[in-house]
Amino acid sequence: MPHDHDHPHSVLPPEPALRIKALETILTQKGLIDPAALDEIIDTYQNRIGPQNGAKVVAKMWVDADFRADMLNDPMPRLREMGLYGRQGEHMVIVENTSEVHNVVVCTLCSCYPWPLLGLPPGWYKSDAYRARVVREPRAVLAEFGLSLAEDQKLRVWDSTAEIRYLVAPERPKGSENMSEDELIALVTRDSMIGTAILPEVSA
């Protein structure tokens, strides 16, 4: 067990952009990282994997009862079929919002988040304020997102303390009854799948 006071990182340049540049340079010189692989990783999470994946799952749950049942029972086989398996999404549990129960997800100990379905987390999800407060005063935090729940609506806060990742399936908005699956996908927001938003009624 290394000692707590040994912190080699302290010899790196103080400015963060220079610090990562220095690390990248040394690691590349040593043949440990391939700059092209870094570009590929960044491109994957900047452009290819994001909340549009989760939105596909949610919209399909709204239109396909069998799929919904599978998602609520054991989502992994169907998610694999859809190509939505991967790092930080190996063990998904999908929880459904209803008029009786609202769900919201956090990771108080770090920043666990379902990458294959939502991409990488936004700044606020990783913030001390969200991590510290949403377990203790979830309704106050939701109000800061403009969401107020009825006093008697049940609220479940899921703290992702293991490798299980949670996705919230928001309620299908009123007014969306005649929309196609593709149109529905476009309605589903990232925050509604974390649980800090609900989907507004669709006006005709």
């Binding site: 936004p122 700044g123 913030s127 304020a129 510290a132 407060r133 377990v135 203790r136 997102f145």
Partner: peptide, 15 residues
């Protein structure tokens, strides 16, 4: 830090 006091509001614009 779960439950800690004093962190102030969450900034939903920090997106």
């Amino acid at each position: 830090m779960g439950g800690r006091f004093g962190d102030g509001p969450v900034d939903p614009q920090d997106n």
